[in-house]
Amino acid sequence: MPNDYFEFQQFRIAQAACAMKVSTDACLLGAVADLHGATRLLDIGTGTGLLALMAAQRHPGVDIEAIEIDEAAAAQAAENVAASPWASRIRVQPLSLAAYAGTQPASFSHIICNPPFFQQSLRSPDAARSTARHTAPDTLSFAELAGFAAEFLASNGLLTVLLPPLEMAAFEREAGQVQLHPATRLVVRHRAGSRVLRHIVGFRRVAGPVVETELAIRATAGEDYSPAFRALLAGFYLAL
């Protein structure tokens, strides 16, 4: 499929009347998640379907489940999927993770998630946006996400999560409680040498050395994207 399809798809998602727009976080996670050997993938908190669509574009052999607790966002995701060339491989369900777990799905080779992470900040007055960005008793918790992955991830499966550094440390503690261990870590900075913005970590059941790499979004000077960022996202943005 030509690259301009995804740019059009992204535009539709960004303009959708729903809580969350396309973000750099989601685009990075969708582009860097290791899909090697993927057969069955779950996108937890799909929003308007971006990660599921990116996974389908990147890996023609994977079947994708996408769940979203916000009904309006889930409806938009289903519409975006239906308009895509990959509709036969993506199923969107308007469910919380707990409700989805109750359906006892088959195991997954890959699970991807950009979970709520503003644990200590004030909640947004926009309820849908707040659900997507904050942890709270009524939304997805780190313990719930780790516990689900421990139950439904295949023995050699991979859970890939994007979080800021402090929140990632908290999630790693929860994951360790259920014997999920970091295997890869991408450290994301605005520019080389600047503070760390995000960690994208791949978790497996077997503990071992962690392969760590770094990515700067912007070039050293000016506002241009870095060559590495351009190369990573070039398959999804015509502008790059």
Results as ranks from 00 to 15, higher is better:
S124E: 08
G37P: 03
G47R: 03
G102D: 13
D43Y: 00
L140D: 00
G222I: 10
V188A: 09
L162R: 02
E167L: 06
R205A: 12
R198W: 13
L163R: 02
V161A: 02
T135V: 09
V81P: 12
I90C: 05
F6C: 07
T46A: 02
Q9M: 11
E172C: 10
K21Y: 04
E214G: 15
R198I: 03
A101L: 07
Q57I: 09
F108C: 02
A219T: 08
R173P: 06
L215K: 14
R191S: 06
L28K: 00
R89M: 09
A183R: 15
I64M: 06
R91A: 12
T160D: 00
D138K: 03
A72F: 07
T48Q: 09
M20C: 09
P165A: 03
A128R: 11
A127D: 08
N156R: 12
H199A: 09
V178F: 05
L166W: 03
Q119C: 08
C27K: 04
S226K: 08
E68F: 13
S96D: 07
N80R: 11
I200T: 06
D4R: 14
Y237Q: 04
F229P: 02
Q93G: 07
P60D: 15
S194N: 07
A127P: 10
Q76T: 11
L50Y: 02
L95V: 08
E172A: 14
E144P: 01
L233M: 08
T103N: 10
L197T: 13
A73M: 13
I13H: 06
L166H: 13
A55L: 09
G222E: 08
S107A: 15
A82I: 09
I44K: 03
A234C: 08
E7G: 10
P165W: 01
A231R: 13
A150Y: 01
D138Q: 11
V62D: 07
R133Q: 05
A75F: 11
V196W: 10
A207N: 12
T24Q: 09
T103Q: 14
V201H: 06
S84K: 04
L163F: 02
A231K: 15
N3S: 11
F236I: 03
A83M: 11
M168I: 08
A154V: 03
V178A: 05
D34H: 00
D25V: 01
G235I: 05
S226L: 06
V211W: 12
V187F: 06
E68V: 10
Q177V: 11
A66G: 13
A73V: 10
T135D: 00
L42I: 07
T135Y: 01
Y225Q: 04
L95G: 07
A52H: 04
E174D: 13
L51W: 10
A38I: 03
L28M: 04
T184Q: 13
L145H: 01
F229T: 10
E214T: 12
H36T: 11
F236A: 01
A219D: 15
F117Y: 15
T24G: 04
G47C: 08
T39D: 01
R91W: 05
P137R: 01
